[in-house]
Simulated scan of single mutants.
Amino acid sequence: MTVIVTTSPGFGKHGSVPGIIAEKGWTLIRCTDPDLHDGGVSRHIREADYLVVGLTPVTTDTLVGASRLKAVLKHGVGTDNIDIPACNARGLPVCNTPAANADAVAELALGLMFSLARFIPQGHGSVISGGWNRRVGSQLGNKVLGIVGLGNIGKRLAVMARGLGMRVVATDPFADMDFAREHAITVVDLPALLGQSDYVSLHVFGGPDTAALINAVTLAQMKPGARLINLARGEVVDLDAVAAALESGQLGGVALDAFVSEPPDVSHPVFSHPNAVFTPHSGADTQEAAENVGLMVLQDIATLEQGHLPDRCLNATALHAGDS
């Protein structure tokens, strides 16, 4: 019997995914207990054939006793919470699901841009509280969108923004220049992007290379009154610096979907600012994206069950090196 342990609240719940798991006779154990530091993984890791990862970190300690484990699979894209060297040491393939939720995240980024431009959450709050506070917003057409990270999500967002008549600039050390030329995207360095963008949307991986990428220095480089959107990782943004920039007016608004601690400590001053909008790490939370991601995970498990490495295996080279 194949046992799948998951720390993802959404894996195995959407579209055709539950039916496929049942049809194959696989057992799914969900470890998302908020009162346990690892959601309960340590209680079930010994019986797991596959670990499907949400936001709970996978460390060396997580893998202790995982005698049956055959692979670690991310229910999503970012693998910064998976200790891949630790998986290499145990000969465990690590897979993710690139592009499966790109449309969902890009659409939310666009929705948050509209929310910032037209004060949609504030208008809603005014009406339901008995008020009628009409704030004059701005249109997105002819504005400059700066995309930090021109990967699958950044590309989707760029095309959507171009469709609205926005001018798009991007920064990415590995930018697809053919795509950029095709869609009239100007690729620049980060300071140049910050200095000309009316909206800056972050779509980078977490980790030490991007920790506090947006800080007091980079916020000062932004066009005065520009708006910031973060659907990447919480640690990419220095919240103290963002709160100060909002208070001074250097930053015209912020929309955050990811936080260092989730749920976050809402006593931080950024959460009481009238030009700040928040969502609960829901960038990928659409029925379509959840099904797509789940199907890709199941496809990779099926491939592994047949004794093969999936094409989406991120550490195939290291695993092959260990076999030699």
Rank of each mutant, 00 (worst) to 15 (best):
L28T: 12
G131C: 08
N230S: 10
S67T: 14
D83T: 02
D49H: 15
V52G: 01
I4P: 11
L295M: 15
I301D: 03
L228G: 04
H268V: 05
N215D: 15
D189S: 09
S267R: 14
V277T: 10
D189H: 02
A102W: 02
D209A: 14
V72R: 04
S126M: 10
S267E: 14
A318M: 02
P93E: 15
F259N: 12
S248P: 03
A170C: 04
L319N: 03
V204T: 13
D33W: 02
G12I: 08
G207Y: 06
W132E: 08
I21W: 05
T79N: 08
E47S: 13
A220Q: 14
M222R: 06
V200Q: 02
A321P: 08
V3Q: 11
V144E: 10
E247A: 13
S324T: 09
R233A: 07
G283L: 05
L63H: 07
V159F: 00
V242I: 11
D189Q: 09
P208V: 04
L116P: 07
D323V: 12
G234K: 07
A232V: 02
V293W: 01
F179S: 05
I214H: 04
D189M: 01
A289N: 03
K13A: 15
L145D: 04
V188Q: 04
E305G: 13
T27H: 14
A89C: 12
V242F: 05
V159P: 00
V200E: 01
G149D: 00
D285C: 15
P208Y: 10
T59I: 11
G123S: 11
L73T: 01
L69W: 01
P263H: 13
G307Q: 01
Q250P: 09
D38V: 08
V105M: 04
E288Y: 08
Q196K: 12
G249A: 07
I120N: 04
D35Q: 15
C31R: 04
D80A: 12
G78R: 03
G252R: 06
Y50I: 07
G25W: 07
R46F: 14
